[in-house]
Design a protein around this nucleic acid. Structure first.
Lengths: 327, 327
DNA sequence: CTGAAAGCGCTAACAA
DNA sequence: TTGTTAGCGCTTTCAG
């Protein structure tokens, strides 16, 4: 800035960062005024250069866009990073290998403190080359090869809690409309479903679980099957399936929850909070995933046990569940 | 890096950036090998320092999260920025004044090339202090005070096109379920609605336009009113209202589109593409907004006329419109 | 209390 | 074809 303030650079540095250095009132004042007048801003890059470390955190995502709530990961990461004085460098790679590689090396060149690598749906990944060069944590995904710290949703506890909401109301025949796509979500939620049944002393009846396309169409198409099972409650793999199920049920003049109780998964606001009746569901903790991701990156949280850190999926009870009219 | 390669820094600089400088094969090779061995990465911050300009673009958003598609703005901005060698610094402020101010000054300190300031719904804003210090473009909002470049959706053309889809199928009594929230969207879409009627030679009947809460509940509650108007087609302020309307109609055993044709706005994928029947709508061009925002920021696009640059809202015809059964 | 000087990693003349 | 040198804007000893 300016020794237009009539002092040396080091003096300026001291007052700007107010280090412990004892600086006289007059000098201090002169600097303040010069800052004011010149509209001076310290140059963060020069600062980082000399400090040898930046305040950047990289976030590379395979799809900021594809799914409505994926943005929540960024949001959570950003909030937590910010709180610790870090700034997020965001790169979207749309799954493109080349983009991914150049995003990562750009981050490395900016000497980021670390990199968060996130996917829009929970899955196993092959660790992109380059990530090894930096502190990395995986968000919403995990590496089967190298043991890289990872943060993922706790699918099975989520599945258990979803089922439990039905059990709590006295349902005994509970169907599960799972996805047909192989994934941690499919396996985890199924495990949770079985767990809830078991702890309730209910038998596991394979005919009660069906695999469908994980969207409205899948739920809609499954109505007849559900009706045939004479289930009184249905746990849907996600809110979209539940929405399709609502539609199908209504087409047969059946009513949620009086005829059939329904519970979803994901807590996709636009849907769950506004269906008729509003949908009880279990939330995918995207915001929390992002937040925890930076916490483990910064060493604020420690992953105790081997394997990914499982983040709880909170229940969001609404109005799609009631006691069964028959048993 | 290393004169461990046995050459001078400037030689390294030349081969890394391959400037036109003629460098001998041996030296070139030695540098390459040293880069390889040392895992050398040029320090972007040092480079920026000496160049006096960074390759950063700032994006401050009032809510990355709140609305599902807001993330698309980031996505579009990121893609376009990336393409021109810029990196996005993202900050979410959740509307918080303090966060906003510190986000902006952090960006200024990093000597960003410019700042994109975006809001999650189209509206007028007061320009945050500090933005004046940088090249700024407003995205999805505009300043009434200072004439800052802005990029917004073309609400009125969107409203016209939405209505036109109904007109094209021969509808003559077209209702409009507008939002009651004062906003550019409300005014623009209404203007477009009137424009379409007029150019079709249809009268504007104020009793055909109602203002509702802009979500599913609003659409649901408006069914009786719609029925009373004997409209054959309904233009809904957004897809959520349309979804509510679907629900209400079905409760009265009425069918879309045979009994009533419906068109939405926003093109909120989760909803519009999966309703029964799928919803014809007009898309809010969030991705494009972000993209154009960086283009005007970088001077690649020029805003000719005064006022915000209006980005087209494309029609997305699906299956909720048919010819009216009665006129 | 304050300033001089070295140096962070790099680029850009300019010499050699 | 390659090396030397002077900074970019800042922090940080170390002297005064």
């Amino acid at each position: 800035m300016a020794e237009a303030a009539g002092v040396s650079v080091s003096t300026v540095s001291h007052v700007v960062n107010n280090t412990g250095a004892r600086i006289g009132q007059d000098a201090r004042e002169r600097v303040r005024r010069a800052i004011e007048d010149l509209g001076y801003r310290p140059n963060a890059m020069a600062k980082n250069l000399v400090k040898g470390a930046s305040r950047f955190l990289g976030l590379v995502a395979d799809a900021i866009a594809s799914t409505p709530f994926a943005g929540q990961i960024i949001h959570g990461a950003q909030d937590e990073a910010w709180q610790h004085g870090y700034v997020l460098l965001v790169a979207n790679t749309e799954g493109n290998q080349g983009a991914e590689a150049s995003a990562i090396s750009m981050m490395l060149e900016h000497k980021v403190r670390g990199i968060l690598y996130s996917t829009w749906y929970h899955r196993a990944i092959d660790l992109p080359a380059g990530l090894a060069e930096a502190d990395t944590v995986l968000v919403n995904c995990y590496s089967t090869g190298h043991p890289v710290p990872a943060v993922v949703p706790d699918e099975s506890t989520g599945g258990r809690d979803a089922t439990q909401m039905l059990v709590d109301q006295g349902h005994q025949r509970i169907a599960f409309l799972n996805t047909r796509t192989p994934s941690p979500a499919r396996d985890g939620r199924l495990a949770g479903y079985r767990q809830a049944l078991q702890s309730a002393g209910l038998p596991f009846d394979p005919s009660l679980v069906a695999e469908v396309q994980p969207d409205q169409e899948g739920g809609y198409a499954a109505v007849d099957h559900i009706l045939a099972t004479r289930a009184t409650g249905v746990f849907c793999h996600n809110d979209r399936v539940a929405m399709g199920l609502y539609d199908g049920l209504r087409d047969r003049d059946l009513h949620v929850p009086t005829d059939v109780s329904v519970v979803g998964f994901d807590n996709q606001e636009v849907i769950a909070a506004h269906l008729h009746p509003t949908l009880s569901t279990v939330a995918l903790p995207h915001y929390e995933l992002g937040r925890r991701g930076v916490r483990v990156l910064l060493g604020l949280d420690v992953i105790e046990r081997p394997g990914p850190l499982a983040v709880a999926c909170p229940c969001v009870p609404r109005n799609s569940i009631t006691r069964p009219s028959r048993v």
